[in-house]
Design a protein around this nucleic acid. Structure first.
Lengths: 210, 210
DNA sequence: CCGATACGAGACTGTTCCGTATCGATAGTT
DNA sequence: AACTATCGATACGGAACAGTCTCGTATCGG
C-alpha cells in the first residue's frame, strides 16, 4: 500500500496503470529500505537530524535512488511518517472507562515506540517550519484520535454515565496532554498502569465527597 | 543582574570584583540587545533557527561582540533562556482551587508569550540534542512549577479538601499536559476561562453521581 | 595624548548538507 | 543482441552557518 495522496514515489510520466515501462524496474526493496532508514534516523536524530546522505547510507542506497522517488526531503519525510499508522481501537461501547482506556493505552504504546514518539515533537517543536508535515500529521493522527475521545465522552454524557456538565474539550485535552507531559520531562516510574490511573483520575475527580 | 551560574558573560581574567579593567568598558546596552535579539529569533525561528549571524544583525552588533561574551552558541542560548523568568505565584492557601488556578493562569500566560512558549518545544522537540539546555530548563522552570502543583494537591489531601486517594502525579500531569496540548494542535477557542475549566474539570471529575 | 580594550562590520576558513550530474554495472523489455 | 531505465557510488556546485580574525573607530583610565 503506497501513500499516494501527497506526492508518492514518482512513477514517471503517465504510462497508464498497467503498461510496463521499458528499462530496469525500480527496486521495491530499495524503496522500503529508504522508508525504514528514514524512520530510524528520524527516531534517533530528530527532525533536523534527518539528512539524506545518512538515510541513503543506512538504506544501502545511492542518493539518486532517493531523489528519483521523492523530489526533496520534505516529501520523503511526508511519505515516511505517513507510513507510520497505528491501529485505532474501535470503541466497544461497554463503558466509557473501558473505551477511553483502550484509546489511551494505544497512545501510550505509541509514545513508547521511539519512531512514533518522535512525531509528537512536531506538535510543539520545529513543526512550524514544516507546515505541510504538521497539517498532515494533525489530520491523520492527532485529530482522528481526539475525535474518538470526544465521541466516547459525548456518548457517556448521553447515556448518563458521565455528568451532563462534563467539559468535553477539557477532558480530551487532559487525557492527551498528560500523555505528552509524562516521562519526557522526568522519567516517571508510573509506566504500567499509567493509562488506568489517568482515566480513573479524570472520571473520579479530586474533590472530597462529604 | 547577570546570570553567573553557568558561564555568564566572560569578564576576562580575574581582576577582582571591584578593580576597574583598563580600556573601553563593555557596553551593557549591547549585551542586552544581544539577549533580546536571541530571544526574538528563538521565538520566531525555533531552536535550530537561531544563527549567530542573524542575532548579531538584529542586535545591531558584530559577531565578535557576541563571542567576546559567550564562547559558543549554546552558552548564548543558555544565558538568553535563563533570563526568561516568570514570577511564581506563591500559593495563598485559601483553597486548592484558588491556588491551582493561580498557577495554571501563569502557565497559560507563559504559553501566550511566544518567547516563553517556544521553550516548551525543548521538552518534546530537539531538546535531546542540547542536554545542558534541557537540564537547566527542567531544573529552573519545569520542576519548580511541578513541585508547586504537587504541594498544593498534597496539602489539599491533608486538609481533607481533596479525596485521600487522589493521584498526585497524575493530577499534576493532567494540568500541565493539558496546557501543552491546548491550541498548539488546534486553535481552540477556549482561551479566556481555560484555566478555570481545566482546574474545575480536574476537581469535579466526570462520573455522574447517583 | 597614550595605551588598552571594546566597538560594528565583514572577510575568511572549515564544515555540513541539499540537490544534481555522472560513472560503469545491472536487469528488465523487445 | 539492442535498448532503456535503475542500480550504488561518488564528485560537484551552492548555500548556510559556526567560529576566528582583521579592519578602522570609539571610549575608558592615567
Amino acid at each position: 500500500m503506497q501513500p499516494v495522496t501527497v506526492a508518492g514515489p514518482d512513477t514517471g510520466p503517465a504510462t497508464g496503470p498497467i503498461a510496463r515501462r521499458p528499462g530496469r524496474p525500480r527496486s521495491e526493496q530499495a524503496e522500503q529500505a529508504i522508508i525504514e532508514a528514514t524512520l530510524d534516523v528520524f527516531a534517533e536524530q530528530g527532525f533536523e537530524g534527518v539528512c539524506v546522505e545518512l538515510v541513503a547510507a543506512r538504506a544501502g542506497v545511492g542518493k539518486a535512488t532517493i531523489y528519483r522517488r521523492w523530489p526533496n526531503k520534505e516529501e520523503l519525510l511526508l511519505a515516511a511518517l505517513g507510513s507510520l499508522k497505528s491501529p485505532y481501537p474501535e470503541p466497544q461501547g461497554d463503558s466509557v472507562r473501558e473505551d477511553l482506556l483502550a484509546i489511551i493505552e494505544v497512545m501510550c504504546a505509541d509514545k513508547a515506540d521511539p519512531r512514533k514518539a518522535r512525531r509528537y515533537a512536531l506538535l510543539l517543536g520545529e513543526g512550524e517550519k514544516y507546515p505541510r508535515l504538521m497539517a498532515r500529521y494533525k489530520a491523520e493522527v492527532v485529530e482522528p484520535r481526539r475525535d474518538m475521545i470526544r465521541s466516547v465522552i459525548r456518548r457517556g454524557i448521553g447515556t448518563g454515565e458521565l455528568r451532563p456538565d462534563t467539559d468535553v474539550e477539557i477532558s480530551m485535552l487532559t487525557l492527551t496532554g498528560a500523555i505528552m507531559a509524562q516521562e519526557k520531562s522526568l522519567d516517571g516510574k508510573l509506566d504500567g498502569d499509567f493509562a488506568a490511573r489517568l482515566v480513573d483520575g479524570l472520571l473520579r475527580g479530586c474533590t472530597a465527597r462529604p
